[in-house]
Design a protein around this nucleic acid. Structure first.
Length: 138
DNA sequence: GCCAACGTTGGC
DNA sequence: GCCAACGTTGGC
């Protein structure tokens, strides 16, 4: 099972909204690399939910509920979205500052490509971020 | 609010 | 097809 990290500005769509809605289309990705990552997601894959700009921390875990399909918010029909289901909040949010302070994460896409909104996370990074976040579930 | 990074657009 | 101009993202 692959792991991912997705970003959202809480002003636009927050973790609280994700939890309230349960399952929610992950729309609005308009970047080729990020879109390719969306297309590579498989049902059941887990992703970290990261708050950009405000918070700047990984705050929760979501799961791919539906694989890539045409993004209803895209009138050109060229872009895709997936459905994400809230799994649970991280007991201890992992801040960007903490990630940057840890040399193990130097090659994490979140650090290297700050503008990428959907990115893969290696199994090793996933496990370590789970530890830091106090995430003990599957 | 500023600015670096970087993707996109459009003139040539 | 190149590249300057411009817009957007997101950290600080």
């Amino acid at each position: 099972m692959a792991h991912w990290l997705v970003k959202s500005e809480p002003d636009a769509f927050s973790w609280d909204q994700q939890v309230r809605n349960g399952t929610e289309p992950w729309t609005g990705v308009r970047n080729a690399l990020a879109a390719n990552n969306l297309k590579a997601m498989r049902q059941g894959d887990r992703a970290f939910f990261y708050h950009s700009n405000i918070g700047k921390a990984i705050v929760g875990v979501v799961e791919v509920a539906r694989e890539a399909y045409p993004d209803p918010t895209d009138e050109t029909g060229r872009w895709v979205c997936v459905d994400m289901r809230a799994v649970g909040p991280l007991p201890q949010p992992v801040t960007l500052a903490a990630i940057k302070a840890d040399p193990d994460f130097a090659d994490l896409a979140l650090v290297r490509q700050s503008r990428l909104s959907v990115m893969p996370v290696s199994d090793a990074h996933w496990a370590r971020l789970c530890t830091l976040g106090g995430w003990t579930r599957d």
